[in-house]
Each structure stands twice: as structure tokens, then as C-alpha cells.
Design a protein around this nucleic acid. Sequence first.
DNA 1: CGGCAGGCGGTTA
DNA 2: TAACCGCCTGCC
Length: 294
Amino acid sequence: MRTQTIVFENIKDFNLAHIFECGQCFRWNPSKDGKSYIGVAGSYAVKARVDKVQDRLDFTEVIGIGEEADTEVCNLTLEVTGGGESFWADYFDLNTNYSIIKDSLINNEPQISDAVEYGRGIRILNQDKFETLISFIVSQNNNIPRIKKCIESICRKYGESLGDVFGEERFAFPSVERMSTASVQELMDLKLGYRSKYIVAATEKYMNEGCPNNYEEVIAYPGVGPKVANCIMLFGLHSVEAFPIDTWVKQIMKDMYSFDENNIKGMSEFAARKFGAYAGYAQQYLFYYYRDRK
DNA sequence: CGGCAGGCGGTTA
DNA sequence: TAACCGCCTGCC
């Protein structure tokens, strides 16, 4: 399939590895060239690359995906099968000033500064709501490689083919309508396990009621508890005050603030008080920092 | 083999 | 309301 190129210039606080490895998305992977990530967002395939902008305005250097161009000014180059500039600017949250967010977090809680520095190129993506709902139902009691495999299987079976892009066939995440054709047995065959019935029921509910708009509506979905609901709020609805508490965050809160690991309520209240409207960003910096150190 | 991985839903006390 | 338990699967 043909692609077009979109370039966003002079971006700060942006690092592909930080963005794609901080637990918010499941459909991006490093490309073999070591300088790009390839993914699918919405119904578009995309290859993303970052160039570091040097002192001379006419010279840029393509850097590897693990390298640092995030506190420096950089350019983001996207090869995409569709979507306009505004779609991709929104997807990558390019109109948000992360320097302000990071300064605010560190001022209110100096103990978080190492984590913020470590994940300083993180962006909270604006992902499709239905995809986020189903993906995080799949994520429960599950590990990342298998979550990615499960979601890829769903896309392959029910999603629209995007044709051969960047070396292999890519598939969009299925629409609600297409997903509603799936049976529990079919999903079991895709190795989704006991989450299969949740996915069928959640798709049905979404078909009937439309997109959930707040935490109470999200957690009312089958297979969605507090942790998954907060992930959907943060990653799907972009409610950046949401603070998902998973097994990693429990460990972090125990280590940093001596919380009992069962005291979820206490951790939530602490996060709301300490990080306020930016709790979701704090969660991402902390999660990425601690998980990478294990 | 048991334990565990970005939990949830149902049951029990 | 808190504590416990079973659950699909894959990997170590």
C-alpha cells in the first residue's frame, strides 16, 4: 500500500521508546532498522522516526529508537497510510506542553524527579476508545507479550486488512460492528481464555449504549474492574487525572511511600492529593521507570 | 512441576 | 467490606 509522509518539526519532550514501552498501547513494535517504530493507529498503519535537530538548521541526524532526542528539539517523521496532520498531532498529543506538566509534578513531589527524568519523552496517546476498552479487558491477569499477541489475533480475524505495509500485512482494530460478529467460542479459539465472554458482552454493551463517558460507565462494563477502568479512562478517554494501580504501581507505592500493598484506596487518595490533575502522567513516569529497572 | 503476569467476578464471613 | 478463590494461557 502507498504511504505518505508527514513531518512535525521542532518537538520537545518526545521519545518513541518511552511512548511505546510505557504500557499504554499494544500495537507498536520496533522496526528492524533500529531507528523506527511500526504500528497501527485507528485504521492506519504508520512508521515513526525521530531526527535530532542540530545547531545548524539545515542538518538533522536520524537517531536510533532508544537514543535520546527528547529534551532536545527534534523532528518527528511519519510514513502513514492515511489520516491527516491533525489526526496524527492529536494521536501523539503534540499540542500538549509536557515541560509544564513535568515541572509541576516535580515541584509538588521532588521524589518523582528521577522517574520523570527517566521517562521524559513519554506522551499519553489519544487512542480509539473501543479499541482501548477491549484491549485493556484482554490485559487483565495477563502479560504484555501475550496481550499483544491476543490483540493481533483479534485484528487479524475481525479487522480490516490494510494490505502489505512496511513488509507485512497489517490489520486495523475491528469496528464495533465487526467485533459484534465474534462468538465466545471463536475468541476461545484465539486463546483469549476466560476474557472471551467479557469481550463478547462488552462489545454488545458498546453496540447498544455507545461510548462510556465517565468512570462509573466504564467500570460498569463486564470484565472491567478498578484497574482496567482507570486504564481506559487514562488511555482511551484521555482523563489524565486517572491513576491506574497495577501490580507494579503497588510495588512502587510500597517502596516509595511505605504503603501496604492491599491499601489501594489509600494509594488512590494519595495520588489524587499529590499529583492532582496530572496523576495519570505521574503514573506513566513511575511505571516506566520502575518496570525498566526490574 | 508450581508460580506468576499490567485482575475480575462471585462467594463467604 | 474485606478476604479469598477460580480462571485461560504461556513462560520460566
